[in-house]
Design a protein around this nucleic acid. Sequence first.
DNA 1: ACCCTCACCTGCACGC
DNA 2: TGCGTGCAGGTGAGGG
Length: 273
Amino acid sequence: MPELPEVEHIARSLNKVLSGQTIRAARLLRDRLAPHTTRAAFAMQLKNARINFVHRRGKHILFDLDNGRTLLTHLRMTGNFSVFGPDSADPKFTHAIFFLGEESRLVFDDQRHFGLMKILKTAELYDSPELKKLAPEPFSDDFSVEYVHRTVQGSKKRIKELLLDQTKFCGLGNIYAAEALFLSSIGPRTISNKLSKPKAIRLREAAQQILREAIEESEALEADPANLEETYSSRAGWRVYDREGEACSVCNGPIKRIKQGGRSTFYCPRCQK
DNA sequence: ACCCTCACCTGCACGC
DNA sequence: TGCGTGCAGGTGAGGG
């Protein structure tokens, strides 16, 4: 159920453990995890592939392989990777297993079954429907003041919903979108193209700050490859998210919860205009 | 274009 | 205790 910082943390941790390792065998246990292929093709295309490195684009985790292919994965809400030794049992909702050396395996489990995997030719990776339309990475040069200003000017959506649109802003999810709006004092229901340029600049900086904070926090922790999600699921202390009725850390007023696009938005009505 | 609802799944916290 | 309801950090489709 991760957003960009958690995906970043998982990708970095997996890269440390997996780069240079070879997938001896891959087993797909739930067909709908990888709807564009079959169990047999999945196994064949990954067999004896060496993992060059693991990286990330948006919320996708990418396994770059030495056979010209890349395994593209998305955790959605509850997808989870773990690296296990022979003594650990597979989790209840295990949907794919990648056997590495004699002693270890990479396991993908997913309670809610929303996660996705796809095997792509590496040369065509960034032309794939999954990645092609993604917005620039929030820490890239392309995510400029001009880009953000132009993007908000071009939309009549409410800003909270625009932040969740991965083709406009990538990496933010329901928590960090709310947090970034709070940090930039912008009301979640503001119509995007009504934002002044200074506000757009503040929003860009707030989004970067929120993401950077979370990445640095997870960096500081020693990741356990058998329990990568623990490092972020233990996180608390949001500024507004999940704090309905609690006091705003700035003005002491009560934090409010509203529904936008079927999802909860938390904000401080006094601070966010 | 935009907004809403539903769908994909399971599990947990809540109120009665 | 059980059972119903609504909620969950994501995303896409379909309809008004």
